[in-house]
Amino acid sequence: MTTPLVEAEGLVKRFGDLVAVAGIDVRVEAGEAFGFLGPNGAGKTSTMRMIACVSPPSAGRLRVLGMDPLRDGPRIRARLGVVHQEDTLDLELTVRENLLIFGRYFSLPRPVIRARADELLAFVQLTDRADDRVDALSGGMRRRLAIARALINEPELLLLDEPTTGLDPQARHLVWDRLHELKATGTTLVLTTHYMDEAEQLCDRLVIMDGGRIVAEGSPRDLIERHVGREVVDLRFTDDTERDAALTRIGTDGVRAEVLPRRLVAYTDDGDRLVAGLGTAGLHPAAMVVRRAGLEDVFLTLTGRSLEE
């Protein structure tokens, strides 16, 4: 068996009294796309910073590419690619200059960097903007450039912190498209996100984080089936009395539901049957949606809270 690219046991990060990461175990194998899903403040970024070897762990054991970040930081970082949540590009330089300069940080020879820069600009579809200054680029283009920059050293592991936060839908799809391409060519991806659709789209395997802890782990399908079931019936009521009546009714069928103000979110393998049952009992919710279960529902089930609060 090959060494995992990331291996954490009981990993802790504290900032003074604040515990950002409260002891997590993670393993990322070569070739997989691994995600940290959770709301803001769940400890995702702190975890990523530790893996990126720019933040020493407060406790626990961490190995990245089989090495110790405290002792071998520069050697590990030479083989990583990092895309930050916020822009860290040189705005006053051109698109191409950003890549050329960044390649030098890895002490790569200039002809090698130039050749790779051309390839990467084509890969992120910025060839025609190569000589424009970065401050003239849109948010989506900047993010693609940040991805290209993180690939200049041909990293074995690409870390992406909230890769599409703040982008419009079209720009997000372009970024996803590029990340799918990287996945297909065997690059190991580790990303954080608070978008369920992003996690479902990109991740082979993910952990759900909340309050610095991992509350669930598995493939997106796996997590949904294990914690939620195939379908979700989202019911809205005009008052909580009706809601409670419906809750009692579906409870007799052994269906589990999340109780929210004037709202029930019921998890079942047969949504239509549940809806029909409510009708028979003379209960008519104000609004009713039957949909496929998603990671959002897993999060709601596990924490009692919505992910995008």
Partner: peptide, 14 residues
Amino acid sequence: WLRTYHAMITTPLG
């Protein structure tokens, strides 16, 4: 403001 140093330290530079 630009956070360019944060990008630098994700490379072998410290």
